[in-house]
Design a protein around this nucleic acid. Sequence first.
DNA 1: TCTTGAGCGTAC
DNA 2: GACGTACGCTCAAGAT
Length: 942
Amino acid sequence: MTDIIDGAALDGSVIPSAEPRTPPPGDPHLILIDGSGYIFRAYHALPPMTRPDGTPVNAVFGFAQMLEKFLNQHSSSHIAVVFDSARQTFRQEIYAAYKAHRPEPPEELIPQFALIREATEAFGVAQVELPGYEADDLIACYAKAFEAEGGRVTIVSSDKDLMQLVRERVIMLDPIKQKPIREPEVLEKFGVPPNKVAEVQALAGDPTDNVPGVPGIGIKTAATLLTEYGDLESLLARAGEIKQPKRRELLLTHAEQARISLRLVTLDCDAPLPLPVETLVARSPEPVRLAAFLAENNFRTLLARLGLGDGAPPNRPRPVAAPLADEPADPLEIPFGNYDCVTDLETLKTWVAKGRAAGVIGLDTETNSLDALAADLVGICLAVAPGKACYIPLRHAGADLLTESPAQIPAEAAIEALRPLLEDPAVLKVLHNAKYDLEVLANPKNGGIQVAPLDDTMMISYALEAGAHGHGMDELSQLHLRHKPISFDEVTGTGRARIPFAHVPLDRATAYAAEDPDVTLRLWHTLKPRLREARALALYEQVERRMIPVLAAMEQAGVKVDGQELARIGTDFGERLVVLEAECHRLAGRAFNVGSPKQLGEVLFDEMGLKGGKKGKTGAYSTDASVLEDLAAQGNPLPRVVLQHRQLAKLKSTYVEGLTAQIAADGRVHTDYSLASTSTGRLASTEPNLQNIPIRNEEGMKIRRAFVAEPGHVLMSADYSQIELRLLAHLAEVPTLREAFEKGEDIHSRTAAEIFHLDPANVDKEARRRAKTINFGIIYGMSAFGLGGRLGIPAGEARGIIDAYFAQYPGIRNEMERLKDEARMKGYVLSPFGRRLWIQDIGAKDPVRRAGAERQAINAPFQGGAAEIIKRAMVRTPRALREAGLKTRMLLQVHDELVFEVPEAEVEAAGATIRKVMEGVAELRVPLLVEVGQGASWAEAH
DNA sequence: TCTTGAGCGTAC
DNA sequence: GACGTACGCTCAAGAT
């Protein structure tokens, strides 16, 4: 399962270095614009210009003007502008003087670089850069990748260094002379074909880049020599044979310099691709965005030329380099609806062809179940462009038993026709909540399709705006597209009137179903570019997107649960509950429902006269555990019995019965992890929730013993020790806590010694308990009142402890204040790895709500940082296990713990591999420590 | 009869 | 008012 994405989305390079494919229809053509060349020319060609706010913009204006003109004159299926992203590259390591005398860019140009990137995005053109690589290298990489896919490539640049890339399907275009450069032009310039250009340059050198070459040898001589000797190495090897003594001497003396020069001028075409080739697909600019950009920079002539000026549209700008000639320019104006229902194979094939030509498609499935692992595929929907979508019914039935099934393509035939598209490494599939559809389609009964490569708009939204709002498709559609999609309930009805989707008439099914991939594709166009702007692209590509197949595999694997054991526990609990209930009734003097807090409150407070005020806005008595504990301490026996009843009732209903109902035919329980439901980046687990299985007391532990391994296997648990406190020591830079973690000391004892000024040997249990409470309380933003309540001491005394804590650890207080300020200023706080965690209510007038938001702001980075660390471990561990030749499977994640099923023979190797990955996944200022255990059950693995 | 929210308790 | 993040169960009241 993980394999389908691994090679693709993971490193950004979806293009395998396989045989060239048959070119898809529609002439795949990638235009790569050398952004640096454009910038340089724009800057020097135009006199200084500034915006009203004083920002220099002459290069931005020139760049935008040139780009607009170019897009107006050329069109292609794919396009990108490539920028340099480093002064320090591998070339400086080879030869320190490389480009050493290049002056720093002029001061007025520096603030314009960012604006130029904005301009590129505003025109709807992808921009590519990669730290440590020059634009030329990236151009080489993308040319190679696209050519391997059967496409052709045009490089727009006048940089002669790029001429080495010219070949049959790769040409250059000189942007000044508007002249194509093919092999003859290269031959004319260098006297050799393109594949020898680098060697000529290696001999001749290049003063502008400080490439030394061999003194006294120019391009002409170099070409002659290479033609005679074949290649540089042969020439250097046989230099002694050269007749002219001077030339011979020079070559012999400077042979090594020539070799170094060759490495400097040879472009590196094996760099990772920062963006998948598919995302470079040409698209029309969003008029609103483009107009906003042009207006912001006061580019009125361009606004006017594009028909975007004041009182602009109705005159829509013409499509610029649009992939489909008949696509209108503004996605917001393309109507929803009017979708095709595909019921014959010929039509389906045309949709498959359209999808391949588009390179990016929206995809969604319709099924008969929310449970991905159980669902039968009922239909598939595709979108090939905004507004162009279809529904392909596969297993629709008549509305009732008397009505015949509607005509549709036999499911197997349709699936086989779609498989090449859905598995095509050159077609990016965009889904919303991809994990679900991946699992449905991977199921053999639904075709066993391995969808790749993919993007997930839910995860894109989550990477951008966790905590700001939900990430369901309907919500995002209304938020970003101002469109309310047809709801599922509208189509199927609700309650007992609900009909299975397979029975919905095809016209209504199509109107609903095809809208989903249409919305998804439009959301992708809107949201994907924002990842870069929010500095969230790496988070999305390297963590969130990779989690999808990892979690799918974990869900599919499931964990074995001993149903008979659960049944025995349930019987035991049931018998004891009967006794406890009778005892409650006896102590109350009457029968009542012990499970009803309302009735219990009446018994305890109205009838028995115990004291304990009201709570909550409903005015009801609170009867929670802390209240009952207090009452029990007063000497009344009933609360104690109720507490015991509550505990067993909880275990029986939620864990014994709830869990038993979830055991699948394979004897295992398959949870559903949600990837985008928390505000901090944590996962959540549902149906069943396997992240809150009891562990803290003996009765609860019995449940955990029912989680077992297959025969011949053990369960292995690996959990991060004190990860959030380590993050506290890391983020707040607390030297003494760092030292304690480095030495492996007991962190709470160390804290106790420091805040209570005790000799470490004299820290007793109570002091340690208080220190532990405050350590965790800090991470939760706890107040003196809360701490006092927790410790059972007056708030004043708790205040003293907190003051002592902050006096000892001023860095922590500073960090807490900084986080609150950050949230107030920006509306979000940054996690330790840069994720934006949005905080609701931080600007609320209501002080209660605002205080709550401040606690969230304090807690979110710690919780979110820990979540990110374990996610990184999760995307690496399966691969590491595989590469170690192990069959160990990762089954569960519980926030700071991973659970594996390990063949007995692999225990040692798996433990070592897992620990190594988990501990090495982040470099903090304190070490990460992972505790590993194993046993026949989850209880024993701890 | 079904849906919804409160109250409670489980985990990290 | 007072400790962050989740999910699921039962009860009870209100909607259908």
